[in-house]
Write a protein that binds this DNA or RNA. Structure first.
Lengths: 254, 254
DNA sequence: CTTAAAAGTGCAAAAACATGCAAAACAAAC
DNA sequence: GTTTGTTTTGCATGTTTTTGCACTTTTAAG
């Protein structure tokens, strides 16, 4: 068993389970706990995992609070815009979910395109109030502050009464095996209900969000119809996504 | 169960529910209450939560935006504020309707008052997102641009399922004989449903809106419980309003 | 004031850790 | 092939962290 090989196995185990203990690893890999500790410390220094007492955790790149994200507008999200806009047709009923990428889409809808836009995010509602042609439907419910969106049964009941031509969502985490995931249960419930009502679901997000997992699965990967991402997708990830019949659009990375 | 992992779970639970007790946590996470207490103290030191007797609360820390707005009061609307705020009690479920006066009320709710605020106006939702103590319920439905609010059957159905302790609305037009009026049918329908569910309805607006009419009556005058206005009400209007059993609060006109 | 829950304190056991050291494995130079 | 130097690994040692228990003190509600 080579050192580098062991390191790779540790990282694999970590992405799979999200957590790992030194004892388990020592047992699985048939080396002493001291060795494992040295490995974990090293990988921790390299910022490949989060070293904690007793083992290690996946480093959750901080999902910054919504308001923080707003204060630092990211123009790089613009590249996802064109493929998304190309899908739109007059008269459609579409969902634009909460999140920075989605909001950017809402703000850049063509002024002469008549649409019905459904959303649970009051910021997007506000953005669209200026638009001369779109009807805006706000999904009601309890406001969930971390995601800046409505959640709960009221929201789900309302969603169930609408059928969507197209749903746009940002990618929190997508994984061929573990599906489309987010980190809050309540958000997952609403998103699941939304996708259930959609003819077509489109995810938008940078390539590093693919092959990633989070606590709550919204839907398995094959429920997604289209993924828009930027260059840098691992070839094996790319092929396995396409093998599921998911359309993959890759835009140049900035 | 790793310590760091447990800390993360505690913080997750906290963002989810806003509050958490030591006993619940000890039970859920299957560790002793002593351990939980140590965890909470540690996380408290790190300013990741607010440690209180019996458990912990989400950090109601610096919300600069929220308090900044407090320091820029519009004196002409401010006068309606005090009588309205005096009616509030912790734990109430209130409606804050759309409109400038109402929005001003939303922006100036005391930071330490726990309330459930229901509204159909995304601007007010957004104002309240940074309030540390209020739960916000957004009434869903079609966005009606002229009034910046949700309307339609979805909205009415959702309203019918909630009971309100207190409803605050701005006065578009109020008349002893013709009641509380607005100029749009769809807005009237929603407001009527809202008042129907309220224990007490409070109107706020300048004196010149009294003794005025508009096309669509929401409710007859006697359905209103309280009117807050400024000095200048015609004496006969004043007496006829009070004759209907409506409480009338007159604040000095700036 | 009374009382029960919650919190702080000291302590001991177990687990995890860091460190130094020597054997083993490996690479590179001779 | 041998030597030299480096890296890796496991072990023994002592240290630190974590945790639950017994005990006292504080808190908050009636």
């Amino acid at each position: 068993m080579l050192l580098a090989e062991r390191h790779q196995l540790i990282l694999d185990q970590l992405t799979l389970h999200g957590r790992i203990t030194s004892v388990e690893l020592a047992k699985t890999l048939a080396v002493s706990e001291d060795t494992i500790r040295r490995d974990l410390n090293k990988l921790g220094e390299l910022k490949l995992l989060r070293r904690v007492h007793g083992g290690a955790l996946v480093l959750q790149e901080d999902t910054p609070d919504y308001f923080d994200r707003l204060s630092t507008p990211d123009p790089s999200k613009k590249r996802f815009l064109k493929p998304a806009l190309d899908m739109l047709e007059a008269g459609q009923t579409i969902v634009i979910d909460s999140g920075e990428t989605c909001r950017y889409l809402a703000q850049n809808l063509p002024a002469n395109l008549p649409l019905t836009v459904v959303t649970g995010c009051p910021l997007i509602v506000q953005d669209l109030m200026q638009h001369p042609q779109v009807h805006v439907i706000q999904i009601g419910g309890r406001m969930f502050k971390p995601a800046m969106r409505t959640v709960g049964n009221s929201a789900i009941e309302m969603i169930k009464q609408i059928r969507f031509d197209l749903v746009f969502m940002g990618i929190c985490a997508f994984h061929v095996k573990h599906g489309f995931c987010v980190s809050y249960l309540e958000e997952a419930e609403v998103l699941r209900a939304t996708i259930e009502q959609a003819d077509r679901t489109v995810l938008m997000g940078p390539h590093d969000k693919l092959d990633k997992t989070m606590t709550f699965q919204i839907v398995p990967a094959q429920k997604i119809h289209h993924v828009i991402t930027d260059a840098g997708v691992r070839p094996d990830v790319q092929t396995s996504i396409q093998a599921l019949g998911i359309e993959l659009t890759i835009v140049p990375s900035s």
